[in-house]
Amino acid sequence: MTDPAASGFIGADPVTFGDGGGASAIEGMPAMLGSQQPDTVMDAGVYGSLTVRAASVRGASHRYEGTPRQDDFCLAVSPDGRWFVVVVADGVSAGARSHVAARLIVRSGARMVADQLATADPAALAWDEIVGRLAGQVLLQARRDTGDDTLEARDAARLMASTVVFAAVPTVPDASGVRRMAALAVGDTSAWVLRQGGGWENLTGVKNAGEAVASSATIALPLLPGGPLVPVATDLLPGDAAVVVTDGVGDALGDGTGEVGAALAGLWRLPPSRHQFTAHVDFARRSHADDRTAVAVWIDASATQPAPPARVAAPPVEPTPAPDPGPGWDAP
């Protein structure tokens, strides 16, 4: 059999990068027996000159323990069709219902950011207010879940908490042919650019840079980061991809030059099939047992001056999260 990572073949063996360790062999019970949250979700398609691949997969640790995937993602387009919005969240494992916080944040956050981008560019958005409102929504959800209307954010965070990263990619280039994307991360979810014919560029900061012993405290909603939130920006050219990930992928990327970074850069030089992409995100790598989410948005290499995409009707915001039928169905 040829190397599945090289050929894109998807068989019984996981896509393995170097030392795969043993944890990828874990099957575990179907995720939905424990919680109404499937093991894996994907989305994919094209929007104008953008090609999109998105996958969120449960990590080996949660598969082994029979606990839910706590990562989530959501996509949206601004009402004027100018901005493609990606939101990715990583529920912190210490909170038994953090998957609910992640789900709420990505769905509500995607709609909120997309709506506001109709009237302002990313740099001018009220990010503090957006993140503050999302934190408030998580707190309210935790209060509903516990029936305790006085629950404080600090205590709510023990039940459910999630990091979040937003990215806004222009659907059309400016007059000079570039697209100035923006990203904002709260916590250790991160945004990257995979340059055409080049490597990974981290937009939102690499963890543990220059420390002898790795450590990584992180902030997660409903707790709020100190200081004002300022998005970072970079220019995308045809062939580049904006890639938004949780730390399950980001930690493996490291500074982007390691084994996983090189392998994914090769596999994602061009958009793979949606199923291949999902298998790539579910790679086997020793010690990487966390949930993983990646959303990649490629600028078509031939996209020089495309017509603006037709406006798509925004889907209704689904009530998030759906009310749980009861502890028997979604017990922590």
Binding site: S61, S93, T189, T246, D290
Partner: peptide, 14 residues
């Protein structure tokens, strides 16, 4: 070890 999985979620302290 499980608390360390995805060290981003859980710092050294966790």
């Amino acid at each position: 070890s499980l608390a360390q999985v995805g060290s981003g979620e859980s710092d050294q302290g966790a």
